[in-house]
Design a binder for these strands. Structure first.
Lengths: 204, 204, 204, 204
DNA sequence: AATGAATGAGTGTTCATTCAT
DNA sequence: CATGAATGAACACTCATTCAT
């Protein structure tokens, strides 16, 4: 590719990004169904027609926004899992690290997560299914952690339920945290969550 | 009112109910935004125009469906609170009773709750706000329980966070339970939830 | 016809009349197009369905209301014409009598005339045509009077134009008089109109 | 604004105008209430949706059509008034000039005036009120002329009534003239009207 | 005759998407 | 690539008329 072509490529990517950022903000504010393409393009400082040079439909930009969400969410668990495997850290600390990671992630991508947490299920069937899939696969990963914790001495509860509790807690509490504009100290939140979930799960 | 008039009144109420049930089922299936009035009336076995003899807009039937949701959800906690006040039951049993009550409620009104839990935030701004209000006032009630439990010897964690964990757990776990078509034994679910949340909250 | 049947006949006519009166008042207030059958039946203290026991459509009651309008309006001129024919009265007095008659008529049927004067042309093509027909035949009668007056010594103006002036004046001025709730003394109005029109028409 | 932008501006104005002209013609033919947006856009050779790029509602194009009507009608009187003030012309000639002006105006904007004269009151309450306002303010201006004429030696009649006669005459006679497709010579009409009204008003 | 629920065709308006410039 | 006018299918809601009771 020529240098000129590369430059164009980069500009194009930036423009596309601008649309994504604009869409994200409008979706978060008005909801997908009540967002008009015009709202997005006005925020992006361009024209309706131009949007379709970058995306083939209204849904596409939404897809882009939520794509990667699952990987992001699940990925952190996979990393944590390694710590457990290696016994590199005592379990409590490992979980704390995990939640710190989530706190950072929710902070950085708050709009995306608000959309995912509050709106996605209401857009249409397809996204409701997707939302539930993401939650399910998140829970699958959580379950692995739980099973590891059990090895460290947790009493035998139904790990499927525990996993659901963890998932619900993470999603619900962080949702509240975002909406409250991160009012609470991150460290306090992380400590309390860890304490609560680990103790709830592990009982001698 | 004459007997005849009363009879008509009853029939009218039943007709209205039929619309509500039909709407509920279509909303749950397709989502509010993708439901057409015609979908509702076809399911109810009547005509589009007739819908408007019973409701003044598409939103009204939705409002009816979700009205009372908050009271239902919060009400159960208020009842439980009385048990604590009276020391009539040991805390664990009281909480178990509470969750049993919720299990029943979610079972009876599963469609309504699915709409509330998965869709409501995505319909429009107004309902997103309402969803969050309901969750918040639910949490307020939970917090009172938590504070009571603390009197029974719970260690000092941030009760606001604990309350959020409880709320998230109840909503998230029951959501999963409904979607899994109540696969899991109610008693097992209730026992595990109680154990988890009370232990998470109360520590020596 | 039996006595019983006759009685029914009378009651039926009265009921029909009640619908007509109610419709008249609502049409005048809201206009034909913005009147609902329900508005009429509510005012008549009965039900929508019942209306159709007396009229076959929304238009029919309107037809009834405006039927006879033409005959009423034109009829007065025909009577006046006889006076002229007979030379029973000096022309000025005859015309005054005529306008007195119109004043009475507009007073008695003010709602009907308001509908005719202000609304009828805007309802639909059919009624616009009818409105113009009525005005035209009214003008035809006026022209005959004018021609009589000319015999009494009016200068030769275009009698068609004079007739239009008379018609426009009668309709326009009485319309204003009705709308002003008959503020002005009838006698003053009649005198002035007569004076104006006769002098405008007859010039030595 | 760039030359290019200016050009677009002009084209857009022309498109808007095309809608107005189309609407005018359809309104005149079918009446406002029986005109569909589709009728207008078909006549304009475009699509329904496009109409809403130029007007925000069905009413807006109607508003545009009748806006300026009052000013147009009343404006001519204001100009005439100056002639009287200056004594530049003998009254009869001045009034003739006025009516010539009206004849021209009604000729040029015949559809607009037909709508105003025959339909406007029947569309809805709002337009009925507007119609009457226009007629009233027209009459106010006429009255000033009448009072001027009186200074030239008119006998004391009620000038309010005379003004109504003038107004009714102008509106009624020109309405007929338009509908008859301007059958009658303009000059004859003007002469007769002037003669009639001035003589009716002024009598020594 | 009286009631008012049931019917369904009709209409203004919206908005994702396309297209000419 | 950028613009914004053009397209037209879609849909909530209305209301004259019918009909079962």
């Amino acid at each position: 590719m020529s240098l000129r072509a590369k430059k164009f490529e980069i500009i194009k990517k930036e423009k596309r990004n601008l649309f994504i950022i604009s869409a994200l903000s409008v979706f978060e504010e008005k909801g997908f169904n009540n967002t008009r393409i015009k709202d997005i393009t006005e925020k992006a400082g361009t024209s309706v027609g131009n949007y379709y040079n970058y995306f083939k439909s209204k849904e596409e930009v939404f897809e882009v926004i939520i794509s990667g969400l699952a990987e992001h969410m699940v990925g952190k668990f996979k990393k944590l899992f390694i710590y457990f495997q290696d016994n590199r850290l005592p379990p409590i600390s490992a979980v704390k690290n995990l939640f710190r990671g989530y706190a950072k992630m929710f902070k950085t991508k708050k709009e995306t997560f608000l959309i995912f947490l509050e709106q996605m299920g209401g857009i249409n069937i397809k996204y409701r299914a997707k939302r539930n899939e993401i939650i399910d696969s998140f829970t699958d990963e959580v379950e692995k952690i739980i099973l590891k914790l059990v090895e460290f001495g947790a009493r035998s509860q139904n790990p499927k339920i525990s996993a659901r509790v963890w998932t619900s807690t993470v999603l619900g509490v962080f949702n509240w945290w975002i909406r409250s504009d991160f009012d609470l100290e991150e460290e306090e939140l992380v400590n309390n969550l860890t304490e609560f979930l680990v103790r709830g799960t592990m009982t001698k």
